[in-house]
Design a protein around this nucleic acid. Structure first.
Lengths: 243, 243
DNA sequence: TAATAATGTGTGTATTTTACACATTAAACG
DNA sequence: CGTTTAATGTGTAAAATACACACATTATTA
């Protein structure tokens, strides 16, 4: 199989089938939904399905787990194998386990998601198998990957409203317009510019750099930096996941 | 094994070990964290561990999954087998997969949780193996079950603040004091009585029954009923899980 | 130098949250 | 039978937050 040669770490359909059907057990996989932000658009990283039956379809980044690794470690390994990404925080979202969800046999998949700045991370792209898709323009995905995507996207939108994430997603220096574009892309609706600014100023996580944008075709905006130390202190008050 | 005889559906330690270690695969289990409310206290349903090594310790309700059932179905089956409960809504919470989390071998567990009124459900108690424990008084649990419990408890507290659940937990007719006791037991802190009432009245899910409590050693409170139809209509606005 | 298209700032209103005080009712008790 | 007790039931004001909206400012560009 061509994939086998190029990506020796990956399991092919045959491998999955033999592994799954030989015993009466259940195979476990991990799928990663990597959201990316670039040019004011929210995207998701997909890979061309290596299963013949799903030729031409796109899939999430996934592979079978190994029995000698922690579940979370498996997620990071698989992401790294598939994309070269290794400095990305992954959050577990949900486990999908319908009987016939995978054509190769009984495979239950634990899904993780993340959100990164596309330009900050170098992908290890093999033969254009990897591609950033606009999230509002997803062609049909393989298996139940649309459902998985939807679940992760909903989770992402919720997280964004609870935590002021989204700072690693912008360049170090950013304008408030940049920040608002980010939030609007993720949440999918427009917000009032004035109230948006007020909200973030009162949160007090922004450092005014006393600089302005360069080379914009209009009045340049002020540039800000994220105040990580203040955020870290405040964070403890928000119980739970820190994305 | 005595458990084998009494509960033929359950897997014993030996079974798990043989199943897990024979192949190089990973076994999958489901654990259920069933919260119960009774006498104004929040409790959790535990079972005596059937593993010798963990003798005397208490465990969550769990068992191995079967390969011919949906993941969600497995959760309901296992809950039913262990407790007799079959009309309980289960919500998936998290999947735990550290390598050494289970003494019998490589077992990854998908956890579900629920919240029920203890008096509304009849448990199928075998030899006192099942027991409702006060949540603030948990002795040491087997394996990583304390961590699992903590995760589910945090999730429950979050859900309670987002959705007006907790109505199936009270008798059909209840006083506002009953309702507040429920919320305080789950959230773990006291609330202002007047503001609590205001909050629920403006939510508009309560039907004033024009009745009062009987046999209370003080001024009786009014009794209310939950307005399910209004709740159902409103519910659509709250995306997601309905517990 | 005027038109354009952004940014930057402020104000008022409505809504929600929080804090807090007093009258009312039934039971318990002398 | 009246008084005490310990709850319930109700209202009001301040504070914080969300929402709607208007105008001056600054580079660009035409």
């Amino acid at each position: 199989m061509e994939n086998e040669v190029k990506n020796p770490g990956f399991k092919t359909l045959q491998k999955i089938q033999s592994e799954v059907k030989s015993s009466n057990t259940i195979a476990l996989s991990v799928d990663c939904v990597i959201f990316g932000f670039d040019e004011n658009k929210l995207k998701v990283l997909l890979i061309r399905s290596d299963l013949k039956k799903y030729q031409g379809k796109w899939s999430l980044l996934g592979d079978l787990m190994r029995s000698e690794e922690d579940l979370d470690d498996a997620a990071y390994r698989i992401l790294k194998q598939r994309t070269g990404l290794n400095d990305v925080y992954l959050e577990q979202v949900h486990t999908f386990g319908k009987i016939n969800r995978h054509p190769a046999g009984r495979v239950i998949t634990v899904t993780y998601c993340s959100l990164i700045n596309i330009r900050h991370h170098k992908l290890n792209i093999l033969d254009n198998e990897l591609h950033w898709h606009d999230i509002d323009n997803l062609a049909d995905l393989a298996f139940d990957h649309q459902e998985i995507f939807d679940t992760c996207y909903t989770r992402l939108q919720k997280r964004v409203q609870e935590h002021p994430l989204g700072f690693n997603l912008l360049p170090k220096k950013f304008s408030l317009r940049d920040l608002q574009n980010l939030y609007e892309a993720i949440l999918g609706f427009k917000m009032d510019r004035r109230n948006f600014r007020k909200k973030f100023f009162t949160m007090d996580f922004l450092i005014d750099l006393k600089e302005i944008e360069q080379n914009v075709p209009h009045r340049p905006g002020k540039l800000y930096e994220f105040n990580y130390s203040k955020y870290e202190k405040r964070k403890k008050k928000w119980a739970g996941i820190d994305f």
